[in-house]
Each structure stands twice: as structure tokens, then as C-alpha cells.
Design a protein around this nucleic acid. Structure first.
Length: 595
RNA sequence: GGUUCCGUAGCUCAGUUGGAUAGAGCAACAGCCUUCUAAGCUGUGGGUCGAGCGUUCGAGUCGCUCCGGAAUCACCA
């Protein structure tokens, strides 16, 4: 449609003014709602060619299009804007071609497809997932679907931070105070259980520090010499030395955590193709750093610590190995990146990590380049904003962290309560109902998070909770179930979307609005994949749902007397359902059949 | 202090490569269920797009300077 108009406009310019213009000077856009018309040409850039006033120019082109293009039915000129109305029947045939295209902007990954590694989630094994992780997981998973839809070969990875002093703290606390508590005998979820010991460590440790300070130690001494801290340090040394008993405790507690994470991941509906563990990558990182040091790319300070000097890149010097030779965060990530490149030879590597680590990823790419890895140019930090509470940041100390499992349960509970209040879902078994409540609750949560521009910080108000009315996931899901309901009802009465014989159908304005949106979908998908922005998809789904609900309300679908018109509406309805389902799929939101 | 990001209605957020009178939802108020699902639809009120200057025929959008907020600049991860 747009291309047709472009071609016509170019012909008009040649015929009227004997001059051709570059494509970007032909600014075609959708006509704003308050004006009549479908497409609008902004004529200001064309005045150089016409040497006439904006109104005259617009009028000239309008007349030409009306006379020469069958699909243009009328036009009007307001200031420098030429509003072109496309013949309604043109839209009807547009729906037909959308219907037969059948790929809706989704591209299959061919053998030559670009390989993209997406890392997301990246949990620590000493505490359960919270709201911040939810944003990470949802963004990462949706990005993986978006890039896959754009024809890339996507590998979803996770890096589990399973080593270090923080893990040892949980281990020490469990050993001292645990009395053999396990997820089985306590019926607690493994990650929560381990998290409790991490918190317990912190509490007991603070008591000890306070005790030492009362006995005359300086605060610094107290922090260093508290027995619990000494025990944790010793545990870390034993871990690094490969002590069998320590390793077996570590493996046992980590397995609890992983079992817990699996439950949360499953509830969120996210998946990974390959999981990396820092306990397996940090040694590679250290090796890389030592090799680079030998090649003179890095330098060693007097105390033995190894650094990279990035002052030439306007950054600081950055530590890569501690004076005792142990690895830091950066070292591990260097190792992980190289291992991944060896595994997948990726073209691009997207890290879904919060914006508090912008500096870290800037340095990571620079260091890899310094080491001679040209592929590091393909590293991309997908930096998203924090989730804040109305009072500010979530703080575990103040108990204001929103736990992921709790939130998921709460959302499902709310969906259940709301559904009962509305008196819905008669005739379903309990397990069917629960499945629907889960889809709705999760849909609300996911949409709430994904509709927001990823790079912005967002506010989550637990008291007001997440809405189920208005611009929400359930609204879109509801629209989808309405569509299903119409199609089912039609099928029962023998009315199904048949062959599209749309030649004689003149669509209503509301129908044209929907066709326009359906027509946009492929462009929205590729734009969202390009911009790595699930929020574009989310907002598109909302617009389409809104448009459909208005149409649904005002016009009969099954009740339409005219057979062709009814068939047309059914096809429109069916197509809308398909596109909404596709859009929700890109967001990782499930579409219930009924609700 | 350096670097990066953000600032749009009372609240939560949209706003395509610069285009016309800046949009939704929530909250408030007023309507609409004998009808394909009312988790819906319709209407009313609500804005110096943080401030200023500049570029442009045209700026919420681009540039500069301020103001406000966040993150980061660890031998934490």
C-alpha cells in the first residue's frame, strides 16, 4: 500500500514538476485520527521541486494521485499536509494478502543465519530470585524470541555465580546452625532454605561484631576477626584447594538451590539452551589473564596483583587478578566469553544485565579487544533499568525485597479471586481453572514489566499491586479469548471463516483501523528485534486489542446479515486472534482459550 | 568530581527516521449487560513534555548550558 503510493507520488513529481526526489524526501505517514484520510504526505520537503506554496503543491499531487491511482478515493489538504484516503475496497484486498502471506514478519533461521548468544538471568546461588531477576528473565526470554523471529539463530545461556565468599557464608551458617535441615525434611524450597542461612549468617555475624566492639575492638578489627568471617574465609580457601568435604557440602547445597530455581524458571516459563557455571569458567579467565600478562598487554603491581590500563580509552586501571592470584568478577567473565565463543562462534553476544554494570561491560569488551579477540566487537550489553519500590530501592536488610515466588503466587491468587468475583469459568475442572488463573496472573505480571521501555527504571507498587483492567496483559488475553469465543460460536452454528471473497466488500472505518494494524505487524516485529525492545510489541498488542474491542462492541460479527460481509468480519477476527497470539508469544505470555 | 542513563497528566507509562490540536490506563465523575464474554464499551475533567538557549518551514524528539533523580568509578559479584 505504502509502496504503491510512493511510486505514484514520484510519478506525480516527475509529471508535474519534471523533477525526481530521493526516497527519504517522500515522507509518508499514517494520518492522525482527528483528520480524515489514511496516509499523509508531508509536502514541505518537496517545495524545492515544485516552487509553489505548500497548499498548491499538496493539491497538485493530490489531483494527480486521484486521477491516476485507482486505490486513491479522495484527498484533502491542510496546510502542508496531503491527506490521502485509500479506497475502502483496497483495504479489503489488503486483508486478503495479509491472510495468504502467512509468515507475519517471522523469518526462519537459515543455515547462514547470524548466531546470537543471549545471556540472561545470571543468579547467585546464595539467595532466591527477586523482582529484579524477574525483569531480567522476562526481558532476556522475550529478546530471545524476538531475535529468533527476526531469523537469527539464538542460543539462550545462563551464567550461574556458584562460587565465592557469599556461597561460603551460607555453607558456614548451615554447618553451624542447620541441625541437618534439608529441603526434604523442612519442606522448604531449596533456594529459600539456603537464602535463610545466608541471612542467618549476616545476623549472627553482626552480633559477633557488636560483641567484639563492646569488648574493645575497633569496628574494622571486629569485622575482620569475627569468628564467622574467619570461618567463611577458611571455607573459601578449602573450596579453592579442592577439599573433598567442603566440595560435597557445596554441591549438596547448590543442588538444593538449582532445584528451587528450576521451579521458579518453570513458573516464569523461561528456558536456557546452555548453562555455564562460574566455578567452571574462572580458571580459564585466570589463564587468559596470565597469558596476556606474559605478552605484555597487562601489568603487575608490586603486591603481585594484575591490572589492565585503560586510561587511553578514558577509563581507569582495572584489577584482573588479586594479589593472592585469585580471580575477580571480571576474570570470570573474560573466561566465560572466550569459552562461549569457542562453543558457538557467535556473531553477536547480548548480555542482559542491569545498568549498574554498564562500566563492567564496557571494560569487558575493551579488555577482550586488547587481548586480540576481534569478535569482542559483537558483545552487546543490553542494559536495563532497576525495578524500584515507591520508597526507593529494594533492600534485603529492610526486608523490602519482593520475592519472585511470592509474587508469582500472589498474581495467580489475584487472578483466581478476580475470576470468582466475576463469576467466570463455569464448567471447568479445578485443574483447568488453575491453569487459566496461572496464565492470567503471569500474563499480568509479564505485561506489566515488558510494556515499559527496558532502559528506564520502573516503579513497582506492591500495595496497589498489578492491575487486571485497562492497559494490561489480561486485557489482551481477554480480547484473545473473545475472539476464540466468536470463532467457536460460529463453528457451532456452522459459520466459519471461509474463502475470502472480498471483492465486493466495503469495510467500515473500524475494520480498516484493524487492517492497518495487522498490516503493520511485520514491520513492528522487525523494528522491535532491531531495537531489542519487547515494549514495542507489548504496546502494539494493546493497540490492536483496543481497536478490536471497539469493533467488537459496535459491529455484529456472526449476526451480520450480508454473507460476504460476515465472512469478511470473521476473517478479520481470525487474523486478529492469530496476530495477538503471535505478539503474546514474543513476550512469553500464554494466551488462554477461555477466561 | 569523571562517565552513563532518566525527567511527559495526581499515579503508572506510550509517543516510530523531527511533522498537524502531545496519547493510553489507573484514580474521580456520568452513562451502557434479554445481544458474539461488562477483565469490556462510550463520555467529562486533568499538561508551560524539568528550565533556558540554539538548529529548522516545523522540536516531547536533534545540539549546548543549567536544575532534579538514579547508577557507577572496590583486591564485592
Amino acid at each position: 500500500m505504502e509502496n504503491l503510493l510512493r511510486k505514484g507520488i514520484r510519478e506525480a513529481l516527475i509529471s508535474l514538476y519534471k523533477s525526481d526526489v530521493p526516497d527519504e524526501s517522500i515522507q509518508l505517514q499514517k494520518t492522525r485520527k482527528e483528520f480524515s484520510g489514511d496516509m499523509t504526505l508531508v509536502v514541505f520537503p518537496l517545495l524545492k521541486n515544485s516552487h509553489r506554496s505548500p497548499e498548491q503543491t499538496a493539491n497538485d499531487i493530490g489531483e494527480y494521485l486521484l486521477g491516476n491511482l485507482k486505490s486513491v478515493s479522495s484527498f484533502n489538504v491542510i496546510k502542508g499536509f496531503l491527506n490521502i484516503t485509500v479506497a475502502p475496497r483496497e483495504w479489503a484486498s489488503r486483508l486478503q494478502s495479509i491472510r495468504v502471506t502467512r509468515n507475519w514478519g517471522f523469518t526462519e533461521a537459515g543455515p547462514e543465519a547470524e548466531v546470537i548468544v543471549i545471556e540472561y538471568s545470571s543468579p547467585n546461588t546464595n539467595k532466591p530470585l527477586h523482582l529484579g531477576h524477574i525483569r531480567n528473565n522476562l526481558l532476556g526470554f522475550s529478546l530471545s524470541r524476538l531475535t529468533a523471529a527476526a531469523g537469527k539463530k539464538v542460543i539462550r545461556t545462563n551464567i550461574v555465580n556458584d562460587r565465592g565468599i557469599h556461597i561460603c557464608k551460607s555453607m558456614v551458617a548451615w554447618k553451624l546452625f542447620g541441625n541437618g535441615e534439608t529441603p526434604e525434611n523442612s519442606r522448604k524450597k531449596g533456594d529459600h532454605l539456603v537464602g535463610e542461612y545466608y541471612v542467618l549468617f549476616d545476623r549472627k555475624y553482626k552480633e559477633q561484631v557488636a560483641g567484639l566492639e563492646a569488648a574493645g575492638s575497633t569496628p574494622e578489627e571486629a569485622r575482620e576477626n569475627a569468628p564467622l568471617m574467619l570461618a567463611a574465609r577458611e571455607m573459601l580457601l578449602r573450596w579453592e584447594a579442592g577439599d573433598a568435604e567442603t566440595l560435597s557440602l557445596w554441591k549438596m547445597m547448590n543442588s538444593w538451590v538449582y532445584a528451587g530455581f528450576d521451579v521458579t524458571y518453570k513458573a516464569l516459563g523461561v528456558e536456557f539452551d546452555r548453562i555455564y557455571y562460574e566455578s567452571e569458567t574462572y580458571k580459564t579467565g585466570r589463564q587468559l589473564v596470565l597469558e596476556a600478562l606474559n605478552s605484555g598487554l597487562l601489568f603487575r603491581k608490586d603486591d603481585g596483583s594484575v591490572w589492565v590500563d585503560l586510561t587511553a580509552e578514558k577509563l581507569d586501571q582495572k584489577l584482573l587478578l588479586r594479589s593472592d592470584g585469585t580471580a575477580v568478577y571480571m576474570t570470570q567473565d573474560l573466561g566465560t566469553a572466550v569459552l562461549r565463543y569457542n562453543d558457538f562462534s557467535f556473531n553477536r553476544h547480548i548480555y542482559v544485565v542491569g545498568n549498574e554494570q554498564n562500566y563492567h561491560f564496557q571494560v569487558l569488551a575493551l579488555v577482550l579487544l586488547r587481548m586480540g579477540y576481534q569478535w569482542a566487537r559483537g558483545l552487546h550489553h543490553f542494559s536495563y533499568g532497576m525495578v524500584e519500590l515507591p520508597e526507593g530501592k529494594m533492600k534485603s536488610r529492610e526486608g523490602t525485597v519482593v520475592d519472585a515466588d511470592d509474587l508469582i503466587t500472589e498474581m495467580t491468587d489475584t487472578a483466581r479471586a478476580m475470576s470468582q468475583e466475576l463469576g467466570k469459568l463455569g464448567g471447568f475442572t479445578e485443574s483447568e481453572k488453575e491453569d487459566i488463573f496461572r496464565k492470567i496472573g503471569l500474563g499480568a505480571l509479564k505485561y506489566y514489566i515488558l510494556k515499559v521501555d527496558p532502559k528506564k527504571n520502573m516503579t513497582f507498587n506492591p500495595a496497589e499491586s498489578i492491575d487486571f483492567n485497562g492497559n494490561t496483559g489480561p486485557f489482551i488475553q481477554y480480547t484473545y479469548t473473545r475472539i476464540k469465543s466468536v470463532l467457536n460460536k460460529g463453528m457451532e452454528t456452522g459459520i466459519t471463516p471461509g474463502e475470502p471473497l472480498f471483492d465486493d466488500v466495503t469495510p467500515d472505518p473500524k475494520e480498516i483501523n484493524i487492517i492497518k494494524l495487522l498490516n503493520d505487524f511485520p514491520a513492528v516485529v522487525s523494528e522491535a528485534a532491531e531495537a531489542l525492545s519487547p515494549s514495542l510489541i507489548a504496546n502494539y498488542c494493546y493497540d490492536l486489542s483496543r481497536e478490536f474491542n471497539q469493533f467488537y462492541h459496535d459491529l455484529p460479527i456472526l449476526g451480520e446479515e450480508n454473507r460476504e460481509k460476515r465472512n469478511f468480519r470473521l476473517n478479520l477476527t481470525e487474523m486478529t486472534g492469530i496476530i495477538i497470539e503471535k505478539g503474546l508469544w514474543l513476550l512469553g505470555i500464554e494466551a488462554p482459550e477461555r477466561m
